[in-house]
Structure formats: structure tokens, C-alpha cells
Amino acid sequence: MKVLIVGSGKTLYFLSRNFSARGYQVVIINRNPEECIQLSRQLTATVVCGDGSDDDILKDAGAMGADAVLAITPNDQDNLVICQLASRKFSVPRTMALANDPDNAEVFEKLGVSGFSTTHIVGSLIEQRASLEQITNLLPVGEGRVNVTEIVLTGDSPVVGKLLKDIDLPENALVAVVIRDKKPIIPRGATVMLAGDRVVLITLPENHGPVLKAFTGERL
């Protein structure tokens, strides 16, 4: 697979290094001659110095035979034009443009270029992690071979309203206690899970993730 990356800085460097390590053929386009020299010393990638939205430079970089073009410059307008030229003039099958302004991710999509915003991605990662705060008291027992975890069920949990026996739990997991209105209940198959319940789970490390997912509905 041949990937053409237009951009600069650490993101470009580490992406190129990763792709090269996976055996992709990487071609970099960068405007800064000094950075180009550095990149060509540090990486096995081919480095072309110039403006990636100039079609002569794209041609020099071999855009014609590229499988993908990735435009990650700090300027949204450049990323858009690079991808449009690559797909229209050089028939590159896959192009992706970084939207520095998160609003532009949607703009790019509407203009027919697939766009992504690191602000969106990082933001949603942080939200995901933060929302996992409902999971507490992660306590390893027996030299870490058993976990005791407490989860607070939110309204959007997939188990809310279900009987315990109807919850599709992975093997070797136990709902030990449900604390409802500060009163502990030892649940039975006919116990209904309610929003706001604090559920104490006993899991093994190998099924810990899937069990949490069954209760929170979130990917861990």
C-alpha cells in the first residue's frame, strides 16, 4: 500500500514512522526544506519538498499510483484542496483531510472529502473516560486473580429494567450485591436492576471488560 502524507510536525513524523513500520510505502510532502532534510534522515519514507496543493508536486510524489492521500497540514483550506486535487486529478481512491476547525469536518464531508477532527476524537475519548467514573472501587483480590468492582447504573445502561437472570453475563461473573437507597440487597434471579443501583461485581481479569460493558453498554 502506498500512502501519501502532506503535513508537518510530530503527527506527520510519528504517522509516517508507524506506516513505514507496517510495511506501507510512505511518501511525505512538506513545504519546509529544513524539515524535509530532517525527515529524510530520520525516516525510510520518500520526502518531496513543496506545496502539496500544487499538482506538479503531487505528480512528483507519485500521486497517480497512491492508494491513499492524507492531508494533515495546519490549514484546513490546504487539506481540502490537496484531497480534491488528489481524487479528481490523480484518481486516488481514498483521501482524508484533517479539519483543524472541528466545524470543518462536516463541511469537508458535504464537499465530498472525508474529514476528521482531532478535537472531536480527543474530546470524545475524554468524555468516554470521564463517564467511566461510574465504575469505582476496582479492588483486586487473591493476587489480582479476582476483581471486585462497583458500578453505578445510569438510566441508559442496557441492564436497567431487566431481571438479573435475563442479563446476558459472560461466564465466571457474579453480581454479588446491589445497593439500592443505601440498602444492600443480595440479588436473586428475579431482582430487577434499576437506574441508580450500585452494583458490586465479582469478575476475573479475562472477563472483566466484557462484564463491565454488559452493565454500562460502553466499549472499554
Binding site: S53, Q77, L80, K110, L111
Partner: peptide
């Protein structure tokens, strides 16, 4: 050029 092209497309398309 790229600013003009992007702004023109956004104005027309969106």
C-alpha cells in the same frame, strides 16, 4: 488560492 477555493465551495455548496 486554497482559501478562495474553500470559501467559494462552502458558499456555493452549503
Amino acid at each position: 488560492d486554497n482559501v478562495n477555493l474553500m470559501v467559494a465551495q462552502v458558499a456555493q455548496g452549503i
